[in-house]
Design a protein around this nucleic acid. Structure first.
Lengths: 186, 186
DNA sequence: TCATTTTCGGACCATGCGGTATTTTATTCT
DNA sequence: AGAATAAAATACCGCATGGTCCGAAAATGA
C-alpha cells in the first residue's frame, strides 16, 4: 500500500492547510487508499500525525539544526535564519511544526509529546548557538542565554507564521531583521 | 431569556479556551437555555461569535485604544503596553481577539469581517501613536511608521498569546521589553 | 490447479456538530 | 375562567468525524 506515499500526501495536506482542518477521510481519498488500510498502517490519527511530524522533522527541521550547529559567526548565522524564515519557498505556507505547536491541545498524545520534544530540542539548539556566540565575545551580557534562545525561537516562529497568513515577504524580513537586531547591537 | 448573560458566558468560554473548541451546544448548556432560544436571539453561530467579539471589543480592546490615544510619551506608552500584555490578569488566558484572528478561517463571514475590521483599526491606532512619537522627535527615522506599527502589534500579540500557553509572566515581560527596545534606542 | 494465507475495501457504528420543525408551556387580554 | 398570543424546550434532521467488522480479492505455496 506504499506507506511513504501516504505519509507524503498527509504531510503536504497538513502543511499546506492545518492539521486540525484535514480529516483522515480526506487523506485516504487523496492517497487513493481505504480507511482500514490507513488504520492498519498507522493505528490511529495520532499515529499518522506523529509519523508525519517525524518525517517533517528529518526532511525540513534538520536543516535548521544544521544551520545552528554550523559554527559560523553570530551575524552570518542570524542572516541565514532570516533568509530561511522570510525567503525559503518551503516556508511559503508556514511551518508544519509551528502549526502543530499552535494547536497542540488538538493533537493526540503521541504527536503532542513529539512536538514538545522537538520544541525542547530547538530551544536547546538556539541556546547552544547563542552560548557559542557569547563565548566568542560576539554577544554582550545583559540577557540570559535561555531568554535569548526563547526570544530568538519565537521571533522566527512569528515570522514563518506570518508567511502562512500571506504577509509580504519583504515586510516579514524587515520585521524579523529588526527583532533580531537586538543581538547585534551591544 | 437574558441575552446579555448568554453573551457573557459565551465570551468567557471562547476566551478561556478557544472559539473553535466551544460548540453552541456547550454554550447553551452553560447558559441554561435551549438551542432554539439561542438561535432566535443570534441567528447563527456566526451571529453569536460576532456579538461576542463586539462585546469583547467594547469591554477590553477599548482600553488598549485608550492607552494608544492617551498622548503620553513614547516610553510611557510602550511601558503601559508592556504592562498590559505581560501582567494584566485579564490576559492570563490570552486575548479573545487574537485567538479569533489566529483561527480566522474557521470563523463565519460576519465574525471574520469584524476581526479584519478591528485588526485594521488596531494597526491604524499603532501607526497613529508611532507617527505622533516621530513628530515629537522621540523616534528616529530608518523604519517606516507602517512597518513599525505592524511590528509593534505583532510583538504584543505574541506576548499575549504566550501568556495563553502558560509561559512565565516575567519571561514574557523580558522578551517583550527586548523586542520593543528597538523603538527606544536610536 | 487448488487451497491457504495475507492484503484490501465497502459498508457500517457511535458520536458530536450546526441548525430546525413541532409541541409544550407561559403570558396576556377579554 | 377561557381563548388568543408569545416564548420556550423537546426531539429531531442531515452531515461529517474517528474508528471498525467482515467479506472480497489477490498473492503465495504445494
Amino acid at each position: 500500500m506504499n506507506a511513504e506515499r501516504v505519509l507524503d500526501g498527509a504531510m503536504r495536506a497538513y502543511w499546506h492547510s492545518d492539521p486540525a482542518d484535514v480529516s483522515v477521510n480526506a487523506i485516504c481519498q487523496m492517497a487513493g487508499i481505504s480507511k482500514p488500510s490507513l488504520y492498519r498502517e498507522f493505528g490511529s490519527e495520532d499515529g499518522l500525525s506523529r509519523a508525519v511530524l517525524d518525517r517533517y522533522a528529518e526532511l525540513v527541521l534538520s536543516e535548521v539544526f544544521v544551520v545552528l550547529h554550523g559554527g559560523h559567526g553570530l551575524h552570518q548565522t542570524l542572516a541565514a535564519l532570516i533568509d530561511f524564515a522570510s525567503d525559503d519557498p518551503r516556508m511559503e505556507t508556514g511551518c508544519l511544526f509551528y502549526k502543530m505547536r499552535a494547536g497542540k491541545h488538538r493533537l493526540g498524545p503521541e504527536t503532542r509529546a513529539r512536538v514538545e520534544e522537538i520544541d525542547a530540542a530547538a530551544q536547546a539548539a538556539y541556546a547552544g548557538f547563542l552560548q557559542a556566540a557569547r563565548d566568542a565575545g560576539e554577544w554582550p551580557d545583559g540577557l540570559s542565554v535561555e531568554a535569548g534562545a526563547k526570544y530568538l525561537g519565537e521571533q522566527i516562529a512569528l515570522a514563518i507564521t506570518q508567511r502562512a497568513s500571506g504577509e509580504d515577504k519583504a515586510r516579514i524580513r524587515e520585521m524579523l531583521t529588526l527583532a533580531l537586531s537586538v543581538f547585534e547591537r551591544g
